[in-house]
Design a protein around this nucleic acid. Structure first.
Length: 168
DNA sequence: GCCAACGTTGGC
DNA sequence: GCCAACGTTGGC
């Protein structure tokens, strides 16, 4: 199947694009919504591209890009009684929660805000801009993905606001 | 902190 | 299987 595109939400206070850049790759644990799980378990393939979205942030928006590096990863937090994501009903033999591992691709110089996404008529239909869209893992069409990457590149060119220099 | 949206749970 | 209560998400 052709490469697919996704949007994955994370709260930067918990795990943001900077964290992904630091650790390079990370299993996307803690999702406890069946629809979101199904996208990860059944839809995501190695090599698929991901928009890394900051939720509960100022501003909320797409903070960078990631890529699926491992599919069908068992979310270990479901078996960990000390985890906030512990699921007492989960069975080793048939784990309930399957996720993916994502790797860092790039951090946008500036978060492409939800406002900016909404302002572009080409993104009218994208799920994340819809009111009450709480799904933390959602599919993105190839054209929408392309528009978002373009917008991010454009917004990078305009404002000279280097918040932080990348460490080398 | 508020609250709308919406998924999940549990009584029936 | 319905649906009210409840909990969570996430923008504002």
């Amino acid at each position: 199947m052709a490469k697919q595109y996704w949007l994955m939400k994370s709260e930067p206070d918990a795990f943001g694009i900077d964290d992904l850049q630091r650790v390079k790759r990370e299993p996307w644990t803690g999702v406890r919504n069946f629809q979101a799980r199904n996208f990860m378990r059944d839809g995501m393939k190695v090599g698929d591209d991901v928009l890394f979205y900051h939720s509960n942030a100022t501003p909320p928006g797409v903070a960078g890009l990631a890529r699926i590096v491992t599919a069908g990863v068992v979310d270990e937090t479901q078996f960990d009684p000390n985890s906030q994501y512990y699921d007492p009903k989960a069975k080793r033999a048939a784990p309930t929660w399957i996720c993916v591992e994502v790797e860092f691709v790039k951090k946008f110089t500036q978060v492409l805000s939800l406002d900016e996404l909404r302002a572009d008529p080409r993104l009218e239909d994208i799920l994340v801009t819809k009111r009450g869209s709480r799904l933390s893992v959602q599919p993105v069409s190839a054209p929408h993905y392309k528009v978002i990457v373009e917008l991010a590149a454009a917004s990078r060119a305009t404002p000279p606001t280097p918040a932080k220099k990348a460490k080398r």
